[in-house]
Amino acid sequence: MPGKTVNLSVPSGEGYRVREAEVSDVPGIRDLERRAGAPFREVGLDAVADDEPPTAEVLRIAVRKGEVFVVEDLSPARGVGEGPVAWMWLSTADGFLLLEQVSVDPAYRGKRIGSALIEGAVDHGRAEGFAGVVLTTFRDIPWNGPLYRRLGFRTMQDAEIGPELRAIRRSETEAGLDVLQRECLRKRITR
């Protein structure tokens, strides 16, 4: 994806801007990821809430590849330099566009920022000729599986999961995530 432009949008008229991340955004992304984990505590997933975000080096590599996007709040109420209010990481797996991560600051939940990013990722996948977008997520957490299913994603059957997505699932299991609570989802893209 290096050098490719991604036309992502967030709800208009709200004073938000989506842009490709820069290396200088990495600390803010990591802080945001910690805040975005807090709601998992409300559903009994303290280990997820306490999980550290990707390392700064991992994020720097993804940023340099052009895989990471941030949403800024440009409203006057938001202080300059307060960091992103949402972020997204796109890569590939098994020939599909992979939605590695989408996180929204809990203070910005309910504003459709996450949904807009996901829909923008699907549009990008379509423009780039991908047959679909895939991801792994929690099946029943409201802002995970149910949200993606409302946006047209469907649960992948075991036989549909390719080797790269299987490797991601293995690493999730090794990290202590309960595989029974997780699922692989895909949204097919039509041209």
Rank of each mutant, 00 (worst) to 15 (best):
A49K: 06
R19S: 11
R30L: 02
R19V: 10
A47P: 01
D25A: 01
A21W: 04
R41Q: 12
A21Q: 08
E33D: 12
D31L: 08
A21T: 03
P39E: 03
E52I: 02
D46R: 15
E33M: 08
E33C: 12
E22F: 10
A21F: 01
E42K: 15
G13R: 13
D25Y: 02
E22K: 14
A49S: 14
G37E: 07
E14G: 10
E42A: 15
G37D: 09
E52L: 15
R41S: 11
G15M: 04
G15H: 08
Y16Q: 02
A49H: 06
P27I: 08
D25K: 04
F40W: 10
P53W: 07
A36K: 00
D51V: 03
G37H: 04
G44M: 14
L32M: 03
G37R: 04
R30W: 00
Y16L: 12
V48E: 11
S12C: 09
P39N: 14
D31K: 06
R35V: 05
E20Y: 10
R19M: 06
R41G: 02
R17C: 11
D25E: 08
G44A: 15
E42Q: 15
P53H: 12
E33L: 11
A49M: 11
A36H: 03
A47V: 14
G28S: 07
E33F: 03
A38T: 13
E42C: 10
V23T: 11
Y16W: 13
P39F: 09
E22L: 15
R34F: 04
D50Q: 12
R35H: 09
F40P: 01
L32F: 01
P53S: 00
V18G: 03
A47Y: 14
R19A: 09
A21P: 03
R30K: 08
P27F: 05
R34E: 06
V23E: 07
E33K: 05
A49I: 09
R35N: 08
S24Y: 00
D46L: 15
E33N: 02
D50G: 13
A21R: 02
P27E: 06
S12L: 07
A21D: 10
E52W: 11
P39Y: 07
G15R: 05
P53G: 00
V26Q: 00
P39I: 09
V26E: 00
D50N: 15
R34D: 05
A36D: 03
V43H: 10
A47H: 12
G13D: 11
G37L: 05
D51Q: 13
R30N: 01
I29M: 03
S24E: 10
R41M: 12
V23S: 09
R30D: 06
L45M: 14
S24R: 13
A38E: 15
E33P: 02
V43P: 06
E14F: 07
A49N: 14
V23C: 04
L45S: 05
A38M: 15
G15W: 10
G13L: 11
D31R: 05
Y16C: 06
V48W: 09
D46Y: 13
A21Y: 05
S24M: 03
A36E: 02
